[in-house]
Write a protein that binds this DNA or RNA. Sequence first.
DNA 1: TACTCTGATGGTAACGATAACATAGGCCAT
DNA 2: ATGGCCTATGTTATCGTTACCATCAGAGTA
Lengths: 318, 318
Amino acid sequence: MTVSRAFKADSLVSRETREAILKTADELGYVFDSTASNLRSQKSGFVAVTIPSINNANFADTVGGLSDTLSKRDMQILLGYTNYNVEEEERLIEQLLRRKPQAIVVTGGTHTERARKLLQTVAIPVIETWDIPNEPIGHYVGFSNRAVMRDMVDHFVALGCQRIAFIGGDVQRDSRGSERRLGFIAAMKAHGLDASRLIAAGSPPISMREGANAMAKLIKLYPDTEAVVCVSDLAAYGALTECRRLEIPVPERFSIGGFGNYEIGEVCVPTLTTINAFAREIGERTAELILDILDGAQQAGNVGISPQLIIRDSSRTL
Amino acid sequence: MTVSRAFKADSLVSRETREAILKTADELGYVFDSTASNLRSQKSGFVAVTIPSINNANFADTVGGLSDTLSKRDMQILLGYTNYNVEEEERLIEQLLRRKPQAIVVTGGTHTERARKLLQTVAIPVIETWDIPNEPIGHYVGFSNRAVMRDMVDHFVALGCQRIAFIGGDVQRDSRGSERRLGFIAAMKAHGLDASRLIAAGSPPISMREGANAMAKLIKLYPDTEAVVCVSDLAAYGALTECRRLEIPVPERFSIGGFGNYEIGEVCVPTLTTINAFAREIGERTAELILDILDGAQQAGNVGISPQLIIRDSSRTL
DNA sequence: TACTCTGATGGTAACGATAACATAGGCCAT
DNA sequence: ATGGCCTATGTTATCGTTACCATCAGAGTA
C-alpha cells in the first residue's frame, strides 16, 4: 500500500520511504501497471477520439490541441480514424468504448443509427466537434460549416464576381464538405446568383490532385467562371497549380478561395484566400470542456467557434 | 464463463447460447471491459508508437500502415509524439510502457540514456524505425539517412551541377535530418566538391516557411549556387516558392531536390525531384515484424528499406 | 457394455493496483 | 493526564475478466 502511494505524486508518504521505494523499484526494473490501476479505480485516463483521417493537417492540429491540453492532467488520447466512413466510425466507436475511455470525442454530427445509440447510452461525456450537429448527442465544439461559406461568397461578390463555382467531394461521405457545399448554394441564392456550377471531385479525402482535376473539368464545363470556392485549401492549391499549368493568371482572370488555413496557403504563390477554422483551438476547447465536466462542472455546455475569413492574393482586391 | 466465451469469436459456445447472451447484453447496454481482460490475460492489445510530430504526412503514413496492418489482428496503436525532443521521448516512453503495450515502436535510433535503458529492460519487442541505428536496441525497420543522400547528389552532379547547397534544420534535434546533412557532405566530398554551403533553417520541424527563408539566405550568401538539396519536400517547396517570388527560374537557373515524396511535390509547378522513403511501407513492415515476433517467429530480425530517387521537373534533365 | 472423445458449460482463483478502513505514534492544547 | 488531530503505514476486499480445471451429456468405437 505504501508502495502504491509512493507512486502517486500527491499522497502522503515520508520522503525517505518514498526515495527508498523508488530506488528499489528502479533496481528491480519495475514498471507501474496502469492496467490494474485502471480496473480498480475505474478510471482509464483515456479520452477516445475519432477523426476522418490521420493524414490531414486540420485534424492533426485538433488532436494536437486535445493531446497537449489533456496531458497536463495525465490523460492520454486513444485515436482512431474513420476514413470518412460512418460504418467504420461505428466499428471504431464500439472498439474504443471497450477501453473505457472517460470521454469520447467524435468529428462531425453524422453517425449511423447504432453509433448514435452507443453514444447516447454510454455514461461518459460525448463531444461532437468540427460541426454544429442538428441533434447534438451530448456536447459540441464547432461551427456551422454551412453558415461559414457565406463570408467567402460575400467576399467574392464584393470583388465583383458573379459566376462563381464550387469544388468539393462527392456528397455522401464527408458531411462537413457537404455542408459547405450547401452553404455555398444558399449564399449564392441569397445574392440572386446562379449556384449550379458545382464540381464533384471524387470520393473524400479531396486533396491537391483532386483539386487540380476538378479545376480542369471546371474550365472545360464553364469557361467563363470568374471565381471558385474550394472545399479545402488542398483542393484550392490543386486548382491553383492547374491554372498555372494552363497559364491562367490568378487572381487576374480567376479568383480562388479555400478552407482550413493550411500552411500551403500561406506559402504558395499567389497566397490563398481561406477560412481559418481554428483547428487547434477546437481541440483545446474540447479538452477544457472535458476536464470541466470530469471536474463536476454543472453548466458545462457547448462551444461555438467563429471561423475567420483570411483574404490573401488569390482573390482580387478592389 | 460462458458469457466470456460468447464474446470471443473463435471459442466454443453453442449458437443459441451465444445469440441469447449477445441479445441480453445488448438489452442491458453491456459493454465489454477490456481493462479487466487485459489485466487477467496480460495482453493489452496495444502497440505503443512514438513519432516526432503528428502533423507530418510521412509519419502519418507510417502510423497509417502500422494501424491498418495491426487492426487486422485487433491490436490498437497507442500514439505519442515527441516534438523532435529526446527528453520528451523519454517521458513518453515511460508513460506508454505503463500501459503494458505488447510492442513499442520508436522513430529513429537516438535516445536519452535512460530511454535506452528502459527500452533495453522492457520485456517486449522494440522496433526502431526510419533509420538504421548505430546500436540497435532490438529490431529496426529503416534505411540509412546518410547513405540515401548519395543518390541525390549523384543525380545533381550528373546534371553538371558543381556548386550544390544543403538546406536543413539545426543539427541537434532531428537526428534523421542531421544524418541526411552528413550524407550530403560525404557525397559531395566523394565527388571532390565543396560541401560547405549548408543553410540551417532553424529548429525542427522544418517546413515550407523555413525552406523559403533558408532559400532567401542561401541566395544572399552564395548567389552562384546551382542546385540545392533540401531535408524534406516541404522545405524544398518553400525554397521553390521563394525562387518564384524572386523570379528565379527553376530548374533553368536552379535545381531543387527534396525528400519524402510528399503529395505537394507531385502537384506543384515545377514538380519536385525527391526521394521516396516508402513511409507507409515502413509502418506495414513494422507491423508485420511485430506480429511475427508475437507469433513466436524465431528468426524475425530487421527490415532494410531502399528509398528511391524520383526525378521530376525541379532538377534539370540533360 | 465399457470406453474414449468431443462439445458445451460451470467453478474458482488470480491478474495488480487501490478504496476504505484500521492502527500506531507523536504533538499540542486543555 | 486526557482527548483530539495529524502523519505515516498496514490490512482487506474488490474492480471484471479469463486461465485452468472440472463436469456432464451424447456420439462413436471396440
